[in-house]
Design a protein around this nucleic acid. Structure first.
Length: 377
RNA sequence: GUGGGUAUGGCGCAGUUGGCUAGCGCGCCAGAUUGUGGCUCUGGAGGCCGAGGGUUCGAGUCCCUCUAUCCACC
């Protein structure tokens, strides 16, 4: 059940009630692909940094340890000791992003595992079955994430097929929810809108999937190489054609600025590898811009990553120490960076929710964007 | 002490029968990264080639002396 509590322009402050707890939106889901946040951040650590939802990956968990094992262990939440909501990505994007050899056919996708190269087939039914075994709170439809740029013809064909796949996903999900040994019989299903940067294909597809009464709707295939302006334009043009009473999820996005802009255009859910990946690579997000801790100027810097931050890392450790850990490739360095960055993102979302409640989102956004542009020297 | 080897950017090395602005790996300094292979990519700085002398149109490459260092023998 999704409820909008406040509206400020197109920005929404809502909450999604699930069997695993209520999600306050807008929300940033923390990415934990293999059932773990990269950077050795545990689910216990997440409890101290305002994380609401963990995103796990269908494809990865299927390949290793195997979704049957996750199911036998009581589902992913039980398995990773995380009692709050989990969203599983369907595997559609991974086929696009990391499977080398792949063949997309009407029935699904044939590709090779990035772990051992063995041949794998995944179609809408398989993806739903795996996600049902994983027993996430929210399952994503199996889609094709088309590359950018793509020809209009390719995009139209791909989007049409993604729609047909969505019908099969919905049907399979309904069947799975009724099975006796299904762990989460209330698993939600979000559909995914595609169409690249072709406004009319996006809108046509949005209208078609809106009629399906899904639990939520996602914008996929963005931030894959197009400009920010193109991305914002597509969000702006497409969101009005999605149900007003359902959550909207912008997949894989993005930078703090991307999120601020997308919220203003009506997006509720986000996820992105940036805070974790960039953290591992030495970039710390702060309220005054992004720092590259590997830069020599932090060698003797006694300050915390962000002097205005209240995270568990900033309360204790200096930039100089964290820089040393990163240079020495100590796991602790990655852990501290990722923990801080996730806290930053989660806190940003908290601020966004408060600003919408107060009805001053636009002012908040503009100030925040101005602050974030400045790099800390 | 004798014989032999080696001396090239922070470290480890390539440099053909002497021939254009001396390369490579790592490191260092920066920049990319958007539904995650702790990956990868892209730039940049840094060397009067151990010292001195000689041969030559031309020497990191050849010759002599010295210095440092390694190995074997005594």
């Amino acid at each position: 059940m999704y409820k909008i509590l406040y509206k400020d322009g197109n920005a929404k402050r809502g909450q999604l009630e699930t069997v695993h707890g209520t999600i306050q939106t807008p929300v940033f889901m923390n990415v934990g692909t293999d059932g773990a946040m990269k950077g050795a951040v545990s689910t216990k650590d997440l409890q101290g940094i305002k994380t609401q939802v963990v995103l796990c990956n269908t494809y990865h968990l299927h390949v290793r340890p195997g979704d049957n094992i996750v199911k036998d262990m009581g589902g992913i939440r039980q398995f990773m000791a995380w009692d709050k909501p989990v969203l599983t990505d369907s595997g559609g994007f991974q086929v696009f992003s990391l499977a080398g050899l792949r063949k997309i056919k009407e029935e699904g996708v044939y590709f090779n595992s990035h772990i051992d190269g063995r041949k794998i087939f995944m179609g809408p039914e398989e993806s739903m079955q795996i996600q049902s075994n994983i027993a996430s709170t929210i399952a994503m439809a199996f889609d094709e994430c088309p590359p950018h740029p793509a020809t209009r013809e390719y995009m139209q064909n791909s989007t049409d097929r993604t729609y047909r796949w969505l019908l099969r996903c919905q049907k399979e999900m309904e069947r799975l929810r009724k099975l006796d040994n299904t762990i989460n019989k209330s698993q939600l299903l979000f559909g995914i809108n595609q169409g690249g940067t072709f406004e009319d294909i996006r809108i046509e597809h949005a209208k078609k999937i809106t009629s399906l009464e899904l639990d939520g709707y996602a914008l996929g295939g963005l931030a894959v190489g197009e400009s920010h302006e193109e991305m914002y334009n597509i969000i702006e043009k497409t969101v009005p054609y999605l149900p007003a009473d359902k959550p909207v999820y912008l997949m894989g996005v993005g930078t703090p600025a991307n999120i601020l802009e997308a919220v203003e255009r009506g997006v509720d859910f986000f996820d992105c590898v940036y805070p974790a990946r960039n953290g591992r690579h030495g970039h710390a997000y702060t309220n005054y811009g992004r720092l590259n801790l590997l830069n020599k100027r932090y060698e003797l810097d006694e300050r915390p990553l962000d002097e205005t931050c209240g995270c568990p890392v900033c309360r204790i450790y200096s930039r100089a120490y964290i820089r040393h850990l990163l240079k020495a490739k100590e796991m602790l360095g990655l852990r501290l960076m990722v923990t801080h960055n996730l806290y930053f993102y989660n806190t940003l979302m908290e601020e966004i929710r408060e600003a919408i409640e107060k009805g001053c989102y636009k002012e908040y956004k503009n100030k925040k964007l101005a602050d974030l542009k400045e790099d800390l020297k």
